[in-house]
């Protein structure tokens, strides 16, 4: 063991770095295994998450009334640690945009970070292009409001106050400015589905959203809404890692205490 550590040290790798690397490597065969099991016909049931189930209802309501759906991808971008949250928002957007164009519901998607804007625009274009009669339906609008988080929130407030929105869906990175948008949505009696990751923001999501995607749940979009085997396999891997982390913690606590 010591000789391995020495070897690592010489190559500029610490023990924790090696540990994390092994953890990362362990994920790959697990992911492949579960995905192949799913391909072979094995079923992995998922616990129900209400927010995913209700999305369709909101989009349907929008199609009936002609009032637009607003979707926010948060204040994160794709070149910093907020990337994963932004991607979760984009994954949900893909579903929402496809559903909205399919049933003729107008959709406005807003972003704050300019690096996220092109991806949002392409996602909306892709959803529109898959529609069989694309020239008879409106392409979802993807636009940037402002790169400053508070200015972005103010712009979203303006949409919620001024455009009689049928539903407000927000998934991505949110900070303390969230309350401006979430509470305005409540005030305007707009049904809201919100997904966020930051524990400092989640209490306010809980207070303002009709349905929430709490933390890790927001990353499960692919498995729940576009059931691709690899996404369901991803959740299974997350659950295995979860058990592994719990066992590690318990073991660590025992070692410290004895």
């Amino acid at each position: 063991m010591d000789s391995i550590l020495e070897l690592l040290g010489n190559s500029g790798i610490t023990a924790t770095q090696a540990l994390m690397f092994i953890l990362l490597l362990l994920v790959l065969p697990l992911l492949a295994l579960f995905a192949s099991q799913l391909h072979a016909g094995k079923r992995i049931p998922l616990r129900p998450i209400r927010a995913f189930e209700r999305l369709g209802t909101f989009i349907g309501q929008s199609a009936e009334t002609g009032q637009p759906v607003h979707m926010s991808l948060g204040v994160g971008g794709i070149v910093d640690p907020s990337t994963a949250e932004s991607l979760a928002g984009l994954a949900l957007m893909e579903h929402v945009a496809t559903e909205a164009t399919a049933c003729g519901a107008p959709l406005t998607v807003t972003v704050s970070d300019p690096t996220l804007l092109p991806l949002a625009q392409d996602t909306s274009r892709r959803a529109w292009e898959t529609h069989p009669y694309q020239y008879q339906v409106q392409e979802p609008e993807a636009r940037m409001i402002a790169p400053d988080a508070t200015a972005y929130a103010a712009g979203v407030m303006d949409i919620l106050l001024g455009e009689r929105v049928a539903a407000n869906i927000m998934v991505g990175r949110f900070g303390p400015e969230y309350l401006l948008m979430g509470e305005t949505g409540v005030k305007c009696r707009v049904p809201q589905v919100v997904g966020a990751a930051d524990p400092q923001v989640l209490p306010f999501v809980h207070a303002t959203a009709d349905d929430m995607l709490l933390g890790e749940e927001m990353f499960a979009v692919g498995a729940y809404l576009r059931p691709r085997p690899v996404h369901i396999a991803s959740l299974r891997v997350q659950d295995w890692l979860r058990v592994f982390l719990i066992l590690t913690i318990v073991l660590g606590v025992l070692l410290r205490s004895l």
């Binding site: 990362l24 994963a84 990751a197 933390g215 890790e216 990353f219 499960a220 991803s234 979860r242």
Partner: peptide, 13 residues
């Protein structure tokens, strides 16, 4: 919550 988000982020990445 933070650990859960980390797991989701790792798999997404």
């Amino acid at each position: 919550i933070i650990l859960g988000v980390a797991l989701g982020t790792i798999l997404t990445g």
